[in-house]
Design a binder for these strands. Sequence first.
DNA 1: CTGTGGTGTCATTTA
DNA 2: GTTAAATGACACCAC
Length: 763
Amino acid sequence: MMCLKKYFTEGLIQVAILLSLVGIRVDVGSYLPPSHEMILGPTSALTQTQFHNQLDGQDLHPKSVDLDGFFTARRLLGWVRSLDRLRVPSSELETWLVRREPDALVVGAPGQPAPLEGGAGGLEVHAVDQVGSVMRSSVVAGSLESEYGPIREDSPNTVAPLLRRSHEEEDKDEDLYEEDTDTLWQDHSDRGRHQWPEEGEEEELVGDTWREIWRDGGRSYDRANRELAQDLSDQFASLEAQSSMSFQECLRLLEDTFPFGEETEPSDPVGIDLGEASGEDPTPVQELLLSPLSSHEDPSLDLEQQWHDILAIMEPEDMDLDRDVMQSGSIQSSSLMDPVHQDVSLQQAILPRSSQDSYPFNPSFGGSVPLEAPLQLALLSQSSSGPDFDFNLTFGPSDLTDSALPLALNGTVGNPMPSIQSSLFLEEPVLPSPLGSLLDDALLDELSFQGLALEESFNPTQASQLEEELDSDSGLSLNFSHSPASPSGSEASYSSSSSSSSSDSSVFSEEGAVGYSSDMEVIVEREEGAVGGYSPEVSKMCSTSYQKPGRFNNLPWLEQVGHDHTYNQPRATSPRQGNSLKLPKSRYSKPYEHDISDKLWGRDERRARTMKIPFSNDLIVNLPVEEFNELLTKHRLSEAQLNLIRDIRRRGKNKMAAQNCRRRKLDVLFGLEEGVEGLCRHKARLLKEKAENLRSVREMKQRLSGLYQEVFSRLRDEQGRPLLATDYSLQFGNDGQVLLATRNGSASEQNCKPHKKQKDGKK
DNA sequence: CTGTGGTGTCATTTA
DNA sequence: GTTAAATGACACCAC
């Protein structure tokens, strides 16, 4: 049923697109608000231009909340894989193609036949060739996507939820896991952004709907092309029918008569169109293409900022974890928690508090993913080398283990965007994305791509294992592995998220300056999902939310951290966002923080505390079923507690699902809007070409007519009288001979004067 | 005060 | 049968 419903809806939209192509006005715009409005809301007033102007890239899309961390690992792996395997969903490709039409033509239509060269066939070829050229241009499609992507992330009201929370219901838990996932999201936004949906199972992120719609849209697009070509062909055919000789014959005659090649052909639809087209759409993509690195770079700055953020936040987190470990012996005993606590203890043992910079990545490691423990260990040891250790070394391993090092990518890889852009779109436009076996190659590819020294530490088998782990354990653990013992784990995510968000913002802003596209959204979205599924919006919120006094009531260092992250403020570009940011900030800075902090706790969190639930809501929500059940069984919980826990889990999951769902909807809408716009542009261009071709044909007919007159003016019958073109027609034999035939049936053929008309010679 | 958009939650369906 | 995910619908809140 759902499928039918979905297809019906999509079908309607496709029909609309088709109709618009065919010429029937379908005002989709009336149904689809401007993309930026759809995404950012009318208040945001975030037009593309505006977006470009917001170089700080602060506007993070509030809706791109991706909640499922389950796919984090896979997506990241997919992203890694995408580094070498260029892959672009046909839908995106088509979107881009439409946008890139002009350039595509320029680039891809070099072999356009001369107008007179092939008659109808030539024209048809032209039309077809356009498609081909467009397709060829797909190689550079990546740039477009990358340039447009950030828009989604740049959403304004990240803080809206915060505001709301600050009012009455204290949704600490929501904040916790939102921010946790957000952290992941942000962390991986850099890399995940370039990643296309990997596995078919992840369709929920990309949205099968989206893909299918786009695929179908692409079909429509192709159909439109074909229709146009056919149309032109038909027109030529009709012209042929109108004239007494075939078009080929006319052409041949003309060729023989005049040196056409030397003439300046006014009707060179291709040339004209191309020329116009080339200047027509100077999309930012071109910028990207020209200087892919220029727009996204400054890894050093990002790194620095991130590093500062991490340093600022890591410490509190660790402390918190310490406390948690101390407090929750029961949890420690839980096998479920073991990995996490291993991490913590390891870190505590190995790293002095100041050197726990690497910890931010720990949160990403699933507490339920035992395999990650060793990797983390390696990571920690590396990072323990000192505060100024090499980022590459520090972050590399985490990258290996996927989502662990969200921040890393920016800094480590430098700017992954360009390379990814270049590579991203080479892969098959075929929609059925390559699923299945991803891991090993992807990881290895990643290593080669990043050129990090990780290879030594990397083990393909490990990767495979990791993949399995990630698959099974899912991003759930990734998201919250750090939080099993306590909400403090969320703080870790906060820190990383905030820091990463800052870096992200820079990247986004740069990208934003380049362009805006749904493709990017999609990528971002995937990243979100890949990272743990939380949106930039949330990430933004994180910046403020981890300042919540409630959390830091007993954690002075956390308070400090909280007050430290003012770099997020400038992000408040939209009024709404600005307000949202202001309120929490002012509140947090007030002395009655404690009172308010209580209000900031989530309802469920509050209940959980009231009920003395021994584990965090994050854990409750994100733990895999088995582990969740195990957790419940390991604690003696009352029925009320169990019910509450289940409710918390259900609500939490549903909340994430809802956010996912909404984001998907927006993505679909946005993609459709893009598609419609692109198709309209394409249609306009095709119509223009058609007009050009018609004009060309008209001219050719005129010249042919003149040529006829010219020829007949030189022909004489036996009596030396001039022959009238109205009475005779020229016919071409296969041997190249030109014969005269009478036009009226009565006198037909008798007068077939074998005037061998070597006009060329004559002339 | 109303409309709009964002978000959380519930109920239901689907895989 | 259970679970997770998806989604429509509703309510609430902020603007």
